[in-house]
Write a protein that binds this DNA or RNA. Sequence first.
DNA 1: GGCGTACTACGAGGGTTATCGTACGAGGGA
DNA 2: TCCCTCGTACGATAACCCTCGTAGTACGCC
Lengths: 127, 127
Amino acid sequence: MQPQTPAPPPSTGRALEHPARGAIRLEDVLHALSDPMRLRVVRTLAGEARELACSDIELPVSKSTTTHHFRVLRECGVINQIYRGTAKMNALRREDLDALFPGLLDSVLLAADGQDLRSGGSAGGGG
Amino acid sequence: MQPQTPAPPPSTGRALEHPARGAIRLEDVLHALSDPMRLRVVRTLAGEARELACSDIELPVSKSTTTHHFRVLRECGVINQIYRGTAKMNALRREDLDALFPGLLDSVLLAADGQDLRSGGSAGGGG
DNA sequence: GGCGTACTACGAGGGTTATCGTACGAGGGA
DNA sequence: TCCCTCGTACGATAACCCTCGTAGTACGCC
């Protein structure tokens, strides 16, 4: 589909470590999801159909703290991160999570939405 | 729903505080479930159809630590605790959790079972 | 090559948590 | 009544986690 766009070179050389599917631990995933900031990131990622850069997801914390949360999410296997130029794109590892823990991610997202509705607030959930 | 319960002496006088259904927070539940000891307790409780005393669930930690974990589970709304004589009976708050977070508990239990199978071990899961 | 943007690494601080040991209250049985 | 079991409270400790600021690296663009 790209006429002569300089084929988006993914990882420019820097590689990021991700746990293999089999190495993803339920406890780690639950722990990652139990943090409000990280849950917000996951919900935003789930709402968008595309990858998002770290800076696309605004969190009410500092830059370094944001980096920390993204790292936690990556290291526990919840998201996939790849470098694209100066940006780092993030995507949910839906297939892996659904294969390992069927229905878990969906029920968490649903629960988060429901809780927001009950709290009378609007948070990251919807698109 | 028990037809003939021989001894229904409920709380002996000491009352325990539980959060109302509406006060249960998803993040707290996920956090509670992210601890291996507490997850084991929840799985054991889910496997048994009846209430279990604290001492019925053996954990590889000291008694005071066990008390701590049960307290966390109760305060975040995952389990219900009532005194019965010298024992304290524990039960999952399935109805509340299912009403608030449909499918969440089941998917967590399923995920935990699946993970155990993959790890080649048999843990608390059961039913 | 120079500049700006995006993200990281490091070190630090403040709060929370998991763990333990010990001493103590509550209830049931002999 | 005495004693045993069950669970609790308290104090202590070490580890963890979230947060931040600053300095630094990698990349794209001009």
